[in-house]
């Protein structure tokens, strides 16, 4: 999982205290009502966050803003110290390469093997076939799919697909890991292993944001902070976000 990072960027990132800054952010699709409104929050460098809230509250939309799949319709978003709300699209790929995403529906490419799906971020970043071999084999073994390297997603179970999706998201050791219900299709033991992987990445400096309903997952991560979304807004905009949420203490 070694990755080359330009020295100038390392120096700058060390000085960064915030990975993401949302200021008065709103989002609407087309001409519909706002699905997110007045979002003001910061994600600290190296933080571990759980995003919770009822279904339809806007968790996935918020994550889309975080991994640059959507632009906000109002407000400002800074990622890694750069204002990206209305940045030219040509600059976005470089930022996306610093973000690992675990999609709720996995979004694996059906005609590629598990190996090729996991290797995709490395190849897009310019690694050769020889360079990806070791890290991908290592990652496959870690998620328990060493013997399924050549299997294509349609032949994998839901849990196996989810593990491939997670492996693809973390293979590049991203600066920001965004996961949408990452343990929805895995058993408790695998969920625990995935949480350990996220924690290990977090200890190495990766900021982790996990959208989940899994209370067990939240309670197993004592240092994490909670962001609760309700009706498109942050439910506890004035208080310090902490675990467990203030309302449950």
């Amino acid at each position: 999982m070694a990755r080359r990072v330009p020295c100038a960027r390392l120096e700058r990132d060390k000085q960064l205290t915030q990975v993401a800054e949302f200021d008065s952010v709103g989002l609407r699709y087309g001409t519909g009502a706002e699905v997110l409104r007045d979002l003001d929050f910061r994600l600290a460098h190296g933080g571990f966050y759980f995003l919770t809230g009822p279904s339809g509250a806007g968790k996935t939309s918020l994550l889309k803003l975080l991994y640059l799949a959507q632009r906000p319709t109002r407000g400002r978003i800074r990622l890694f110290g750069e204002e990206l709300s209305d940045a030219r699209r040509e600059v976005l790929p470089n930022f996306r390469r610093r973000i690992g995403v675990v999609f709720q529906d996995f979004r694996l490419i059906r005609h590629l093997s598990a190996f090729d799906n996991i290797a995709l971020p490395l190849r897009i970043a310019g690694a050769t076939d020889e360079q990806v071999e070791g890290p991908v084999r290592e990652m496959l073994a870690w998620v328990g799919l060493a013997d399924r390297a050549s299997a294509r997603p349609p032949t994998l179970s839901g849990g196996e697909q989810q593990r491939v999706a997670i492996a693809r998201a973390v293979i590049n050791r991203p600066d920001l890991l965004v996961a949408d219900e990452p343990t929805g299709n895995v058993d408790a033991a695998m969920a625990q292993r995935l949480l350990h992987l996220f924690s290990a990445l977090n200890r190495q400096g990766t900021t982790v944001v996990v959208a989940t309903h899994d209370v067990g997952l939240i309670s197993a991560t004592p240092g994490a902070q909670l962001i609760r979304i309700e009706n498109g807004g942050i439910a506890d905009p004035t208080g310090t976000l902490r675990n467990p949420p203030r309302s449950r203490r």
Binding site: N94, R97, V101, R107, L108, L120, P121, I124, A125
Partner: peptide, 11 residues
Amino acid sequence: FTIEVMHGIGA
């Protein structure tokens, strides 16, 4: 779909 995934990963 493949293009969307590739773009999402930073292609």
